[in-house]
Design a binder for these strands. Sequence first.
DNA 1: AAACCGTGGCA
DNA 2: TTGCCAAGGTT
Length: 331
Amino acid sequence: MLQGPVALVSGHGNRCLAASGRIDLAMTTETCAQGRAPEVLALDPELLLAWFDANVRDLPWRRPECTPWGVLASEVMLQQTPVARVEPVWREWMARWPRPSALAAASQAEVVRAWGKLGYPRRALRLHAAATAIAEKHGDVVPADVDTLLALPGIGAYTARAVAAFAYGRRCPVVDTNVRRVVARAVQGAGDAGPPATNRDLADVQALLPAEENRAARYSAALMELGQVVCTARSPRCADCPVVDRCAWHRAGRPAYQGPTRPTQKFAGTDRQVRGLLLDVLRGSSGPVERPALDAVWADAGQRDRCLDSLLVDGLIEQTDDGRFALPGEG
DNA sequence: AAACCGTGGCA
DNA sequence: TTGCCAAGGTT
């Protein structure tokens, strides 16, 4: 087991303690906030934390030198986007904009272009807006309080708690799709999680958290990590699972998921694809482009115009006085 | 609540 | 090849 300041969320090290203003007390004996129902024990903190210590991936936003701003940026980039695609972009962003105020000083065009092809580019504008709010209203310091984080653009129930827990070592339920799946299986014995229900999901995970604050934060990271690398959606690697013997789903013979199936989102032919193609033209251009350059990316003029308009409404593109199109702020 | 919002890898 | 999936948020 790790000891002392190292025994924090995925090795955040001294920053967590310093930033959260806490004294590094010795690890307390194992305690659980709620009762000791057998289902709760399935995700026993002792087992999960030992597994996490031995298997944690060395991701850059988990390193001791990573700031809360780095954690926040990583969490926004990771929304619906795989780690492998985020990592190089995150490194560029941190080198270029090491503090919220640095990002705030950049133009929206720079930010959208630097976002590259991570997808859902509105996240880039929201992160830029969040950085501006942090710089102007919070002294360039990422808030540690969940409710304050929730008030920032692009920061929802998951991201706010992820930042509080992973950047500041706070004890709060961090519920993403991985955690929902792990709890559904290990605790509830279902093959997968049902439709999201934020308040209930938060309460379910809250009940699992160890009492001690930094231990709870590390537990949250462990729960997510387990879902990402072992208790995966398609082919769970139960042989590598630290709680396989306690898992309700495994003990029940891994029954198939019974609940409602989530309708799969289309992409080909949708406005999302067309918007992506249009924006890609502007990302690849150093300045405003003529209308014909955009017309070339999609044959259906009606859909094209609708998408162009929605991009304007979203503030992802702007129209210059002479009728050309550009990323916001570079017209 | 449900639909919408990008992109690419993988089985 | 096609469908599923990936650290969600907003409306």
